[in-house]
């Protein structure tokens, strides 16, 4: 297969950046998108040109490293998939493919298609956990949790932190990311003691990182490789309203 690639090139954070056009040919339909870029890079290196920088690691859709904005969509033309799990058989022979980095103010470009997503970690730092020290836990089966609840918590817990929700959102909101963690822990009895503080603190951090507001377009859930449902956002909203509108009986 043959493709014309329009790739965003940017030397570093200070550089203006621009698109450059490359042709690749002889690509097997069973090549993954990233392997196609590998092939391009091998050629560029051989030609003495600068290869394209892009993030990747596990290449099986779980580490959340990769993230390209392909033909106007986060992680490319298929819904609920990571870039590394996208195969060239999903493109038409001869197609023109536009490849951009994920764009958002909190995701500054490092080089070419590589962006800094550490803002997401800083949100987790504000409360995306249950404060338990190693060694202090009771027997695992002392806290029975209904299967349906555990399953639901699991659905929310599968977020891979790739930032596609932010990239796809017209407002560059990180709401689905935050909501996934809030909802995961809100489901579980272990998550209750810190529930009020967690949602408030994580939302405050999300704002101060410069993410936009959520306007419920649902683009995030369509692109989310972990299939985090929009019900996570509804759960966050409920928790946020509850945490702010009802009195905290134990607050000093």
């Amino acid at each position: 297969m043959r493709f014309t690639l329009e790739i965003w090139r940017q030397k570093n954070a200070q550089d203006e950046g621009r698109f450059e056009v490359y042709e690749v040919d002889g690509i097997s339909p069973n090549t993954s998108f990233l392997e196609m870029l590998d092939i391009l890079n091998e050629r560029l290196i051989k030609e003495g040109k600068e290869p394209v920088a892009f993030d990747h690691d596990c290449r099986e859709g779980i580490c959340g490293s990769c993230g390209l904005f392909i033909n106007g969509r986060a992680h490319g033309p298929l819904p609920n998939i990571t870039t590394c799990r996208l195969y060239m058989r999903h493109f038409k022979d001869g197609e023109r493919i536009v490849i951009e980095p994920f764009r958002a103010k909190p995701f500054p470009v490092i080089k070419d298609l590589v962006v800094d997503r550490s803002a997401l970690d800083r949100i987790i730092q504000k409360g995306g956990y249950i404060s338990v020290n190693t060694g202090s836990a009771p027997d695992a089966n002392s806290i029975p949790i209904p299967k349906a609840v555990a399953d639901r918590a699991f659905d929310y817990a599968t977020c891979i932190g790739c930032g596609a929700c932010v990239a796809a959102c017209k407002n560059a909101s990180a709401m689905l990311f935050v909501a996934a963690k809030v909802s995961h822990l809100a489901m579980l009895p272990q998550g209750q003691p810190e529930r009020r503080q967690r949602v408030k603190r994580m939302v405050a951090q999300m704002d101060s990182e410069g993410f936009g507001h959520c306007s419920n377009t649902g683009a995030c859930a369509v692109e989310c490789p972990a299939k985090i449902p929009l019900s996570a956002i509804a759960q966050l909203q409920r928790d946020y309203i509850w945490a702010n509108l009802t009195p905290d009986l134990y607050a000093r």
């Binding site: 904005f69 106007g72 969509r73 764009r103 958002a104 407002n171 560059a172 909101s173 507001h213």
Partner: peptide, 20 residues
């Protein structure tokens, strides 16, 4: 606020594929 959270937009954005 819209511009502030994404100062540089996409050259190609196929938002029609994921939202109404």
């Amino acid at each position: 606020r819209e511009k502030k959270s994404r100062p540089k937009g996409y050259a190609l954005n196929n938002a029609g594929a994921n939202s109404s």
